[in-house]
Each structure stands twice: as structure tokens, then as C-alpha cells.
Amino acid sequence: MTKFLSTSIFFAAAAAVAAPVLADEVNVYSYRQPELIKPLTDAFTAETGIKVNVAYLKKGMIERLEAEGDRSPADMVLTVDISRLAGVVNAGLTQPVVSDSINENVPAQYRDPENHWFGLTTRARIVYASKDRVADGEVTTYEDLADPKWKGRICTRSGTNAYNVALTSAMIEHHGEEGAKTWLEGVKANLARKPQGNDRAQVKAIWAGECDISVGNTYYMGKMLSDEEQKEWADSVRIVFPTFENAGTHVNVSGVALTKAAPNKENAIKMMEFLTSPKAQEIYAKANFEYPVAPGTEADALVSGWGEFTADDVNLMTLAGNRSQALKITEQVDFDG
């Protein structure tokens, strides 16, 4: 029988047998790190008395839920990136939640039109620019990244990484598949090196003089500034919030969904309502240097200090629908080659 360890890592077989249903608990499958979830689960339990059991997974969430079927002990999934949220929904593993409080706290572009998932925090896909080698205003749009003036000056992680695929999906939404393909070809022509590493590795490359700009998520700046070694990398760059031409800055989300099986459905909905509340979103956003989505909530002072931006208003589920096209054109241009 699967045993959950409250807010700690546990390991179990993929085809786990359902755990006993207790009146005062809720079971969560999460791709997020334990240190990011614990402040939230502790606050929820303190407020409601409901115990939270979290299974921290590195991969295979969809496969696990499919294997467990109706006997799954999971009530909720909590993850990052719209493609992962949409993947769970499209696999038929979730159910809609109708809640006035959730809808009040989560703007329309950050929730599924059919109410299967809801965003909790956002992160912008921004440009890290060398303070020494890139002038203010030299890059203002994502389209700028394909300009030949950046030849040999851009670093990025793999084009098939989920965050870059989401950005390409947004480019498809704004410019069509052919326009996005032309853009990818232009960006590839401007790369200083073969795509590699994570977002922080690109900032390190700028610090080392290997390139002048990179694409990354905002929250990595907070993580680097909190690390003694990486602070020097972070201090060598500034954050630029590019936009799409005639649109806003691309953002992605962390989000939550109610599973189809949900043995503790009532408790799970209570937790979803709590997670989308301003109180919980501020806790969550501060823990990972992200932006809360609830109107009137504030980001951490460090995050606010990076400047203001207007988020692109395209519903993220629309971008998830472009994912297969985005992967296709990324492979067609051999972006990582």
C-alpha cells in the first residue's frame, strides 16, 4: 500500500494501490521542490486542520496517474509550465472546479477556460543582458533576437526545453508557424555556441564573456543573487522585459489541478481555494522569486525591484495547443544542431 510522507519525498511503484481515505487529509503530486511547497502546506494545515501529504516527483506524473486510474490516492497535481498542466488535462486525468473565489483570484489568461487548471504564480521569459556590452534599449522585443546585429552574441538552453517551446508557441500565436520558423532560424544564426545548460548557465556564460545576452526566466535572478558563487554572475547582467511586437511579455505559470479520481475532493478544493488566495500566493511567490497572479497581491521586494512589465494576454491553454507545432519547427531548423 502506498504510504505518503507528509511534505517529504517518498518512493512508490507506478501502479500503486490507493491509500486509505481520511476525513482530514489531502494528497498532492508535485513536480516542485519540497522547500517551495512546505511553507504553503504548513500554512494551509494551520488554517484548516487538514493534513497535506505531498509526493515529490521528478518525472512520470501522467504515466503514474494513468497506471493508478480510479484507485489513485492523488487529489491534486501541482506543477510548473503550461505544457505540463495541459498534458495532465489532455490525458483526461483531471476534473473541472467551479469556485467563485478561485475565479476572482486567478485572471482569465492564467486559468483553463474549462476550469481544469488554475495558475498560482507567473514567471516572465526575459533577456539577461551584459551590463558592460549591451546598451539600454538595445533589445526591446523577442523579434529583436533574430536581428543579425546579435550574430555570435546569444546564449540559450536547448530549443526543446519546455520554457523555450512555450516561447516559440507564443511566437506562433503572434506571427504564425512560418513567421515563428523564420524567427527561430534567425535566432539560431545569432548563437554564440550550441544550446546547452540551464538558464543560470547562460548568465554564467555572459559573465565569462562567451556571449552578451541570453533568454531565461526571471526567478533565476533571485536564485543566483541568493547563492554566494552565482551572485557574481547575476551582478554582471541586468534584466530586460522584451515584448512581442504590439503585444506583451511572455509569461509561464505554476499551477494546480484537481485529479479525476480525487478521493478527498472536498478537502482538495479547499486547498485549491487557499492556494489561489492572496495570502498563499504571496508566500509561494516569495519562496521562489515569482509573481503572484491574484489582483492586489505583491511580489517580493527584490522581484518588484526588477521593474514593471505588461504580460501578454494570450490564454496559456492556447499556447499549449501550439506546442506540437513549436517542437516541429524547432526540429526542422535543427536549432540544437
Rank of each mutant, 00 (worst) to 15 (best):
L5A: 15
T7Y: 11
A14V: 14
A15P: 06
A15H: 08
A16L: 13
V17H: 09
V21A: 14
N27F: 10
N27Y: 04
S30A: 10
R32W: 01
E35N: 14
K38E: 12
K38Y: 05
P39M: 11
P39R: 06
D42S: 14
T45H: 12
G49I: 15
V52L: 07
V54A: 12
M61D: 01
P73S: 15
D75A: 13
L78H: 05
T79E: 09
T79Y: 07
I82L: 01
S83H: 11
R84V: 08
L93S: 00
T94P: 09
Q95N: 11
V98I: 05
S101C: 01
S101N: 12
N105Y: 02
P107V: 08
H116S: 01
G119F: 04
R125D: 11
A129Y: 04
S130H: 07
S130W: 06
D132H: 12
R133Q: 12
V134K: 00
V139S: 03
A146L: 12
A146G: 08
W150Y: 14
I154E: 00
R157Y: 03
N161P: 02
N161S: 14
Y163N: 11
A166G: 09
S169H: 02
S169G: 15
A170T: 00
I172K: 01
E173W: 11
H175A: 05
G176L: 02
W183R: 02
L184G: 10
A189N: 07
A189S: 11
A201C: 01
I206E: 00
I213E: 03
S214V: 01
V215H: 00
Y220Q: 12
M221T: 10
L225R: 14
S226P: 07
K231N: 10
K231C: 08
W233K: 01
S236Y: 01
V237K: 00
P242G: 09
F244W: 15
N246A: 13
G248N: 02
V251F: 11
V256F: 02
L258N: 03
N264S: 05
N267E: 06
A268G: 11
A268T: 01
K270T: 06
M272V: 12
F274G: 14
F274K: 07
L275K: 07
Q281H: 04
I283L: 12
K286R: 13
N288D: 15
Y291V: 15
P292V: 06
T297E: 10
D300H: 12
A301R: 08
A301V: 03
L302R: 05
E308V: 03
A311N: 07
D312S: 03
D313P: 09
L316Y: 00
M317G: 02
S324N: 07
S324G: 05
A326G: 00
T330N: 13
Q332H: 12
Q332K: 12
Q332F: 05
Q332W: 13
G337P: 04
